[in-house]
């Protein structure tokens, strides 16, 4: 089983590396890092611009593959992702921002998965009853609403709530209140409250997808013979559903977790922007608007590593749930 997971990990590793290299090539060809220097008044000399571009390793006169190779060598030898157009190391910028994004992403997708699986099982057991229909159309409504609109709607709701309460009950701009001082607990609580709305939005998006998929898998399982066998040998309805039904239905779900993780990453990027979090989403957008090739490549590497880990995790889950894979 360890070998199986290792083999899958190596497979995903190469895929992420290829995706990152492609992103490097595409952004190198598409973005023009010299543009902002030509727009300056007085314009820096050609030599100065060349020196800056060479220093960043983004000089368009050097062949793209050569630059990609240098970039990769720099990662392997120095553990460095290069320097951004603002002169700060990309690695340092990502490290200071990754926590913000990961906190939202991990909490949101975990709660979303739990809520989604629960709702999906519940909906399948109560198929076509009113509660199932409500969950079904609720998740369709979430699918049909762009992520940023969900975020904005939650903000409008929170503003109304704050207005009704007559005090600042839910704060939602940025990751923390600027200038707030106090004990460790107060600061943590402040960050928690700021995290509340984007997390709710991410949970809604995740749960909508997971519940639909879990419901359809569960429906297939419910009509399977082994559920009837479990009931026939004397298991109660609930026990047969949970021990035999949900366990089997979770096997295809573990693949779906990996498949849908990219959607959640995009969703959390949008939510970071809506809620003005200084996370990887803002970093990616700034990188593109500032023609910062190293930053775009670094962001892609970050996302690729996230997807690498989530895919491997889903393989581990798969192997843990399905004894057939282990041998």
């Amino acid at each position: 089983m360890v070998f199986y997971i290792f083999r899958r990990f190596v497979n995903y590793f190469f895929l992420s590396m290829i995706a990152t290299c492609l992103a490097y090539i595409v952004s190198s060809l598409a973005l023009d890092p010299a543009a902002k220097y030509y727009g300056r008044n007085p314009q820096p000399s050609q030599q100065t611009i060349e020196n800056i571009l060479n220093g960043l390793g983004v000089n368009p006169d050097v062949p793209v593959l050569q630059r990609l190779w240098d970039w990769l060598v720099n990662i392997v030898v120095h553990g460095s992702l290069g320097t951004g157009v603002n002169g700060v190391s990309i690695g340092d910028q990502i490290i200071s921002r990754a926590g913000v994004s990961l906190r939202l992403l991990l909490i949101g997708s975990l709660i979303g998965a739990i809520v989604g699986v629960t709702l999906g099982v519940w909906g399948a057991v109560r198929q076509y009853k009113l509660s199932d229909q409500v969950v079904t159309y609720g998740s369709y409504l979430i699918f049909a609403t762009p992520t940023f609109v969900i975020g904005v709607l939650l903000m409008i709701g929170a503003t109304a709530l704050n207005g009704a309460a007559g005090m600042q009950l839910i704060t939602f701009t940025g990751e923390y209140s600027a200038g707030l001082t106090g004990s460790w607990g107060e600061l943590a609580l402040d960050r928690g409250i700021h995290l509340l709305l984007p997390t709710i939005a991410l949970v809604l998006i995740g749960a909508a997808g997971y519940s639909r998929y879990q419901r359809s898998v569960m429906l297939d399982v419910l009509s399977a013979d082994f559920i009837r066998t479990a009931r026939a040998k004397g298991r109660s309805r609930n026990s047969a559903l949970v021990r035999h039904g949900v366990r089997v239905a979770l096997i295809p779900m573990s693949t779906f977790f990996a498949y849908s993780f990219g959607t959640l990453v995009s969703g959390s990027i949008m939510l970071e922007i809506v809620f003005s979090f200084h996370g990887m989403g803002e970093f990616a957008l700034n990188a593109i608007s500032q023609n910062d090739i190293n930053a775009v490549a670094g962001t892609t590497l970050f996302v690729a590593i996230l997807i690498l880990f989530s895919s491997t995790l889903s393989e581990v889950l798969y192997a843990a749930l399905d004894p057939r894979v282990r041998n």
Binding site: A19, S27, A30, G262, T263, V265, I269, A284, T300, I307
Partner: peptide, 22 residues
């Protein structure tokens, strides 16, 4: 299949942002 897997590692919106901006 491999091309599909590679695209799978890049979230659509993120990829589209890069291409659209240029």
């Amino acid at each position: 299949s491999r091309i599909g897997d590679i695209f799978f590692a890049v979230p659509t919106v993120l990829g589209a942002i890069v291409l659209m901006s240029v």
